[in-house]
Design a protein around this nucleic acid. Sequence first.
RNA 1: GGUUCGAUAGCUCAACUGGAUAGAGCAUCAGAUUUCUAAUCUGACGGUUCAGGGUUCGAGUCCCUGUCGAAUCACCA
Length: 589
Amino acid sequence: MGPFEYITAAAVNAVKALYNVDAADNLIQTQPTRKEFEGDVTLVTFPLLRTSHKSPEATATEIGQWIKDNCGEIASFNVVKGFLNIKLSGAFWSDTLKNIASAPNYGQLPETGKTVMVEFSSPNTNKPLHLGHVRNNLLGWSVSQLLSANGHNVIKVNLVNDRGIHICKSMIAWLRCGDGITPEKAGKKGDHLIGDYYVKFNDLYKEEVAELTAAGMSQEDAEKNAPILKEAQAMLVKWEQGDPQVRALWKKMNDWVYAGFDQTYAALGISFDKTYYESNTYLLGKSLVEEGLKKGVFERHDDNSVWCDLTADGLDKKLLLRSDGTSVYMTQDLGTAVSRYNEYHFDEHIYVVGNEQNYHFQVLKLILKKLGFDWSDAIYHLSYGMVELPEGKMKSREGTVVDADDLIEKMYTTAKETSQELGKLEGMTEEEKDELYMMLGLGALKYFIIKVDPKKTMLFDPKESIDFNGNTGPFIQYTHARIRSILRRAQDKPQSTDAELLPKEESLIKILASYPDKIREAGIAHSPAIIANYAYDLAKEFNQYYHDTQILKEPDTAIRAQRLLLIETIARVLTHSMGILGISLPERM
RNA sequence: GGUUCGAUAGCUCAACUGGAUAGAGCAUCAGAUUUCUAAUCUGACGGUUCAGGGUUCGAGUCCCUGUCGAAUCACCA
C-alpha cells in the first residue's frame, strides 16, 4: 500500500470514529507535504469543516491525534493552519522499498482488456521528415508505450499519404527535369531526392505563373491555369483511373521514399504494428460517400462535386469529392477509420496529429456520426503544438526547415565531441563508443522534445545546440551510468534490511512509490511529458543524495546492503520510465 | 469576421487538476575533485503568473471583459 492510500484509509476511519460520518472521496484530500514542512503526507482539512463543525486547526489536530493513536505506522504529525502534516515511520518506508524492489515489473499496471489504436507519423511521400515529424513520431511512440504501461492493448499504426496531388507534383517535376536520376545515382536518400523535385515543381510553377501574368493574365487565373499544375491534376485523374504508366512511376518513386523513411524510423527507434496506405483506403472512402448520398447525409452539386453540409452544427460545408470525381483527404480518412474499426473494434482510437488539424478531426467525428457510426466518440485527437523557430514557423520556401536526418546526425556529433573531451571511455571498442554517442545524442533530442507538454507550442533554436547538462536526457543517462558503476563494483548483494533510513533516503523512496500514480496520471492526460519530468526529479534527488552519502564505503553491512537496494531500484525505475520515452540508458558514459 | 488554442524569472519549461511562501534548468556571479563518474553538487541573483473584474476559507489554475499571439474556416494534405 502506498503512503497516500494508507493515510486516506486512516483518515476515513478517523472521520467515522470522531464524527460518525462515512467520508465520501472528495472529503479526504491528500497531497505530498511541501518541503518546508515536516511530514510525508498532508491531509487538507478544509473540506471536512462542515462535518466536524470545528476550526481548521482543531479538526486537523483531532484527526492527527486519532490517527497517531490508532494506526501503527505514524511517526509524528503537526498542524499548520488547516493542513495536517503526517510523518510516516521509518519501518513504513523500508517496507515500501522492499515491496517496490521485489515487484517483478514495477511500473506496469494491470491489464485493462481495452484495445487502443494509436496512429502517428502519417507522412506524405513527397518530402523527407522534418522536426515537426520528429515531435509527432516521438510523441506517438511514447504515448503508445505509456498506454501499454497503463495495461491497455496498444496497436501502433502509421498511415502513409502515398497518393494525391502532392506526389503527382514531384512526379511531374522528375519527368520534366529528372533525366532518369535515381537515389543511387544521386547518392542521396530517396525521400530527400523526391523532396528536391517537389521543390523543383514549385519553382517551375512560379515561373509559369510569372510568364502568364506578364502576358496579361490575372494573378488568380494564372495560378489556376499554369500548364504544369494542369498536368499534375491530369496525372492525379489518370492515377485514379489506374493508368499503368502513371502507377508504375508512382510506385517506383514511392519505394524510394519508403527506403528513406525506414532509415529515419530506425534511427529514431520507431516501429509500427501496421502500416496503412491511403491508396488502399481511399476507395472505401468513396463508397462511404456514395452511401452518404443515398442516406441524404451528403449532397451533390451541379458541377458533380459532393459536399457535407455542417452549417447546422456551426461548421462550414465540407468537400468530399472534387468535381472531377477524385477524393480528398477527408474522403480517405473516413474510409481508413471505418476499415480499422471493422478490423479491431477499438475502445479508443488516438490520432497523433498537429493542432493545425483540429478542425479536420472535429469534422471527421461529426461526419462519422452522421453516417451512423456511434463509435466515432472513441476517436481522440491528440493535438500537439507546432515546433517553432525563433523567427516563427519553419518554411521550406525560406529554407528554414530543420531536417530530421540532419538533426540526428548533429546530435550524434555533439555527443561524440563532448564524450571525447571528457575522456572517460577507455577500454571501449570503437563500435561500443559509436553506439553510445548515438544513444546520448538521441537521448538529448528525445528528452528535449518530450519533456514539453504535448499541447503546447514549443521552441527550437537551431543556433543553440540542445543541451547536455541540467534538465536533459544525458543528465538522466549519466545518473544511471553512475549507479550502474557502483553496482558493478559492489561486493555484496543489494538487500532489504531493518537499517535506519536517512531523510534523503525516505524522500527517494517516496518518489519511487509515486511512480504508478504518475503512470496513471500521464496516461489519462496522454502526456509523456509527465513521465519525463518525473524521471528528472528522481535523478536529481539521487544526485544530491549521492553527493554526500557513502555507499560502497559505508562500513555497516546492513546499511550498505539497503543502500545498494535503494540505488538499484532507482536505476530500474529510471530505465522503465525512460523506456516509455524511447530513451536508452548506458552502463557507463 | 466565426471557431479553437495559448500568454508564468532575461531564455526554455514545471506547478499533482482549486491548496501553504509559484518551482527547475539555461544564462550571469561565487564556491566544491588526493574520496563510489564534476555530463555532478552547494550558494547568490532573478516574479504585479498579459491587464481588469467576479466566484470562496483559498485562484497561475474556474467564470466574464479586454489586449497580444498562433492555428483553422481551400476542388492542399
